[in-house]
Simulated assay, not measured.
Amino acid sequence: MAKPTISDLAKAAGVSVTTVSHAFSGRRHVDPETRRRIQALAEQIGYHPSSAAVALRSGRTGTIALASSMPFAVAAGPSRLGFLMEIAASAAMSALTRNLALCLIPPHPSAKSYVSAGFDGVILVEPMRDDPVLAHFEQRQTPIVSIGTVPDRPDIPAVDLRSRDTSSLLLTHLEEQGCRNVMALVGASQRTSQIESRAAYCAFAQTHGHAPRLLALDEEEGEEIAYRATLAALRDDPRIDGIFAAVDAFASGAVRAAQELGRRIPEDLRLVTRYDGLRAKLSRPPITAVDLHLPDIAERAVELLLDRIDGKPRMIEAAMPELVPRHSSTL
């Protein structure tokens, strides 16, 4: 038996083919009762609109993407369940509730390898200044929003992660715990989170009269570079009594170095990190971190992208981060 066509459905419903098309695409208004009747008849006669045809008529594919140039060394954690994957899981659920598919594009230093598939829009996670991923999608005129503001690009709608507030919260905690010689392990990348973390640390050191010890590290090397840098720093200056790690992989490396040197945490050295992921929770001792409210941020990013696709760009500020004190900084 031949598959029913849109013309067959239109005839059965007593409406035009155009009305049937709009009832499925949602691009034009159709009386709600008429829409329900058309959809009920479609199910009854076994008519299914072609997804390709719907996409062609509506200009939408029903698919959005989540992309980042962050290296796996910092984007992922134990079992690859890190910062990026927590956002991806929440964004996927948010997309599914809106009948959208979410495609996760893995971290990669170059946009050249990215698929050429069309997306209705893209959420970028913590893009860098002059990020190749951003350039890739801008060249294709794909609607873009960002989790974390894009340096020097106030025109790109974003969910502001409040990275300076996060850093200040952690540094103030170390000060309140009695630390007077705090070292900072911060990413050298030109991402807003790392730019603002560096600025917050410098302001903190100046305000409290501390001699600044800021180590800007290559995020590509993750835990290993932090381990080596912390080992050298603690050997060079035994007075260091606090470490602010702006990347959780750096915190893991710092814990290894401290333990190798026999520095007790938190008795001799207190340590905090930005992201409350599995690295912080599974560390021994568990590491004081910050709840960034990533599920809420992912939900807001999806909403922001849909607004952007509809031509309504705006900016959103995430909820204030909350300190999660643990044994790495409190006795």
Rank of each mutant, 00 (worst) to 15 (best):
P321I: 02
D131T: 01
L214R: 00
L9H: 04
D291A: 10
R308T: 15
L100W: 05
L214M: 03
P143I: 12
A42R: 06
A111K: 02
D268N: 04
H293C: 12
L124H: 10
V302N: 01
F137T: 04
I287K: 05
Q39T: 09
A301G: 09
A203C: 13
D296R: 11
T63M: 08
V15H: 03
A2G: 15
I87Q: 03
R28E: 06
S94H: 02
Y114K: 11
E303N: 11
I38N: 06
E126L: 15
R300D: 14
N99M: 12
V272S: 11
A249R: 08
A184R: 01
P325R: 02
L96T: 15
P295A: 10
G77T: 08
R35G: 11
R162D: 13
A73R: 10
P212H: 05
S163P: 05
T288G: 13
A257T: 02
S25T: 10
A40S: 14
L134W: 05
D218R: 02
V122M: 04
G59T: 14
V125W: 03
D8F: 04
Y275K: 11
D218I: 00
S116R: 13
V150H: 04
D236W: 01
S79C: 15
D130G: 12
P32Q: 02
S7P: 13
T34W: 06
I64C: 02
T142H: 06
V115N: 12
A52E: 09
D8P: 05
Q39F: 05
E267T: 07
Y47Q: 04
Q139T: 09
A10P: 04
Q190C: 05
H108Q: 11
L171M: 03
L102I: 07
R191H: 11
G14V: 11
A75N: 01
N99S: 13
S110G: 10
K312L: 15
G222F: 03
F119S: 00
S16Y: 03
A12Y: 13
Y227P: 07
F24R: 07
T63W: 09
I225L: 05
H208K: 13
A12H: 10
I6H: 05
V145A: 02
G253C: 02
A200R: 04
M315N: 14
A254T: 09
P151F: 00
D296T: 12
A245R: 05
L169Q: 01
L294P: 03
A53H: 12
S189A: 13
Q39N: 08
V290M: 09
V30F: 11
P71T: 00
A226H: 01
Q44A: 13
P127W: 08
Y201M: 06
L278F: 11
T166Q: 09
H22W: 07
A280G: 12
K281T: 15
L66S: 07
I123Q: 02
